[in-house]
């Protein structure tokens, strides 16, 4: 018990870093995902080919290798970033690639008739997307976003390998210093679980709220 009290400040600081990594890279991943997903829908070739390459590279290679690459190889060509920035950058690009596909497929899932209606009402494309198409596509995206948020929370442990003292890394350091791996790793285990719960709850609430009103749950009269 004494040991727990002694290590808790370190674990909490690690947990704080994990949360910060998740929030920053998660927000950036959403921005990247929406930008890339929408840009690919525009079907301009000079844009969509490089973006397709980006997505496939980041989806089909190991995230760990991506992190190492950015951390160790970029400095060789003169780009020096802090470890935290590098970690967020790679996680944002990696998850952004997945999210862009979620965004793209959710938007493609919206009925062609909705696009037709916006044209018949003389809406410009940007307005049509902003007011009609994207608001309907977001409820389609939410379950996948929830999954990726949880994945991201856990994936932040990868950046421990580029010297960022997040939750997993601080635990590993504590084990080296104090021993007691069972207790310490069990605490980490529980902390990850506690961090995940609000994400799950948030996602549930969002799913309920958005679209809840208009989804046809009552049979039409």
């Amino acid at each position: 018990m004494n040991l727990l009290l002694e290590i808790s400040p370190v674990l909490l600081r690690g947990a704080y870093t994990t949360v910060l990594l998740t929030l920053v890279s998660g927000t950036c991943a959403l921005l990247v995902g929406f930008a890339v997903g929408l840009a690919r829908l525009a079907r301009t070739r000079w844009l969509s080919i490089p973006l397709a390459i980006y997505i496939e590279v980041f989806r089909n290679t190991s995230s760990l290798v991506q992190i190492f690459y950015f951390f160790f190889v970029l400095p060789l060509i003169g780009i020096r970033l802090e470890a935290f920035t590098t970690g967020c950058l790679v996680l944002a690009l990696n998850f952004g690639a997945y999210i862009s596909e979620v965004v793209r497929s959710a938007i493609l899932s919206i009925d062609r008739g909705q696009h037709d209606a916006t044209i018949a009402l003389n809406m410009p494309t940007s307005l049509s997307y902003r007011r009609i198409i994207i608001p309907q596509a977001i409820p389609v995206m939410l379950p996948a976003f929830g999954n990726y948020a949880l994945e991201l929370l856990k994936a932040t442990s990868l950046v421990s390998l580029i010297t960022i003292t997040e939750l997993t890394f601080s635990g590993a350091q504590l084990v080296q210093y104090y021993g007691h791996p069972t207790l310490i790793y069990m605490s980490i285990f529980v902390i990850y679980l506690l961090l995940a719960l609000p994400l799950v709850a948030l996602n549930k609430a969002l799913e309920r709220h958005s679209g809840g009103q208009w989804k046809p749950k009552v049979p039409t009269t």
Binding site: D116, A117, A120, P135, Q136
Partner: peptide, 29 residues
């Protein structure tokens, strides 16, 4: 803008009320 159309499948905007459906284009366009 001189042309309007009514569709076989209605194509109303499901996330808006009837009133909002009718108001949307006059306000936004």
């Amino acid at each position: 803008g001189k042309i309007g159309m009514v569709f076989q499948q209605f194509n109303l905007f499901p996330h808006m009320t009837a009133l909002e459906n009718v108001m949307e284009a006059p306000v936004q366009v």
